[in-house]
Amino acid sequence: MAEQQLDPAALAKVLGVEAAVVRAWLEGDGTKLPLHHIVKLQETYGYSPKWLANGKGDSKLSGQIEPELDEPSLAFDIVEIPPNSFRRIPVVGMAQLGDNGHFSDIEYPVGHGDGFLTFPTNDPDAYGLRCNGDSMRPRIKHNEFVVIEPNRAITNGDEVLVKSQDGRVMVKELAYVRDGVVHLSSVNERHGMLRVPQDQIERLHYVGGIVKASAWRPD
Rank of each mutant, 00 (worst) to 15 (best):
E27W: 07
Q64F: 13
G115P: 03
V171A: 10
W51P: 00
L11I: 01
G113N: 05
L194W: 01
D179L: 04
E66T: 12
L26P: 01
G208W: 07
N188F: 08
D123K: 04
G167W: 10
M170H: 09
R168L: 12
V147H: 03
V39W: 11
V169R: 07
L35E: 13
H205G: 10
E173I: 14
S186E: 09
E80K: 11
I81R: 08
P138S: 12
S85G: 01
A24I: 00
H37F: 15
A19G: 04
L41T: 01
A175Y: 02
R130P: 03
A12G: 02
E66K: 04
A175I: 01
V207I: 15
K40Y: 01
L69N: 06
V177Y: 00
G113E: 06
K56R: 13
V182I: 14
I210G: 03
V196G: 00
G111T: 04
S73I: 12
R137C: 13
K212E: 10
H112Q: 15
L41I: 05
D158W: 03
Q5I: 09
F119D: 04
P138E: 11
H102A: 15
P150C: 11
G180D: 07
L26A: 10
D114H: 12
H183D: 01
T121V: 11
P120I: 03
F119M: 09
E66Y: 13
G63A: 05
N132Y: 15
A20M: 00
I201L: 08
G113T: 09
E66I: 08
D7L: 03
F145L: 03
A213V: 06
R23W: 05
R195W: 00
L11A: 05
Y176N: 00
R139M: 14
A19V: 02
R178F: 03
M170W: 10
M136F: 13
V181R: 05
R130Q: 14
S164W: 08
H37Y: 15
H102C: 14
E43R: 08
H112K: 15
S135E: 06
M1I: 10
D99A: 12
E189F: 13
V169K: 07
G111P: 00
I140E: 09
D70W: 09
